[in-house]
């Protein structure tokens, strides 16, 4: 252990709900997008799932609104170090979309892509089983543009860069393909509980 002289920190922040190396951001919800925030009207927004699937599908805002809605209430974790407790999102489980398009047996991964061109890669297993959503609202309000509105991917059990803002689609693949941050040295999976921040972690 490499002790820093005079540093005691705030052990109270090192709570059981906090993944290693994270701190509690309290009420703050920092915005860290790397690109210019796009102004996308709900009427112009679409979500597509294609690639290795039986039947590619595209949904517009109204169609997504008619799908069964569900909620995520829990924590989110950013690779820069902050975690936010007790967030509440609502939207549509990705299982609903994946059940409709029917991924091939050979499918293993997905690339999530945004209307800006931002991308993030994910194992398909992280997108199924009620652990991932297309989020349309936060705390009962429409998702603000700077937080990915009108709709973003939500995969809260992974670092939040995986939860692509302004989500445009998922391409289902039979291999892993690094997305935007992953090409910039970040971890392929990004599990906060294993502190998978950078490739090599």
């Amino acid at each position: 252990m490499n002790v820093t002289r005079g540093f005691t920190g705030r052990p109270s922040m090192d709570g059981p709900g906090l993944p290693p190396g994270q701190y509690d951001a309290g009420d703050a919800w920092p915005v860290l997008s790397a690109e210019v925030t796009p102004g996308i009207a709900p009427a112009d927004w679409t979500f597509r799932v294609d690639g290795l699937v039986a039947e590619p599908g595209t949904w517009d805002w109204e169609q997504v609104g008619r799908l069964p809605q569900s909620e995520y209430a829990g924590d989110i974790h950013c690779v820069t170090g902050w975690s936010r407790f007790g967030t509440r999102f609502s939207g549509v489980s990705l299982d609903v979309f994946l059940d409709a398009v029917r991924p091939d047996a050979a499918a293993t991964h997905a690339v999530a892509y945004a209307h800006t061109g931002y991308t993030a890669n994910l194992p398909l297993a992280d997108l199924t089983g009620g652990r991932a959503w297309i989020a349309l609202a936060h705390d009962g309000e429409p998702l603000p543009a700077e937080h990915g509105g009108p709709a973003r991917l939500l995969v809260p059990h992974l670092y939040f860069w995986k939860s692509a803002k302004w989500i445009a689609g998922l391409r289902i693949l039979d291999h892993d393909e690094p997305g935007f941050w992953e090409q910039n040295g970040y971890h392929a999976r990004g599990n906060p509980w294993q502190e998978q921040r950078y490739s090599g972690d």
Binding site: A114, H115, T116, Y118, A168, F180, G185, S199
Partner: peptide
């Protein structure tokens, strides 16, 4: 991606050095 990649990285990054 169907849209222009917003902001391509400028350099290749050595993963091991960062770890």
């Amino acid at each position: 991606p169907p849209t222009r990649f917003a902001v391509p990285g400028r350099i290749a990054v050595a993963g091991q050095a960062a770890a």
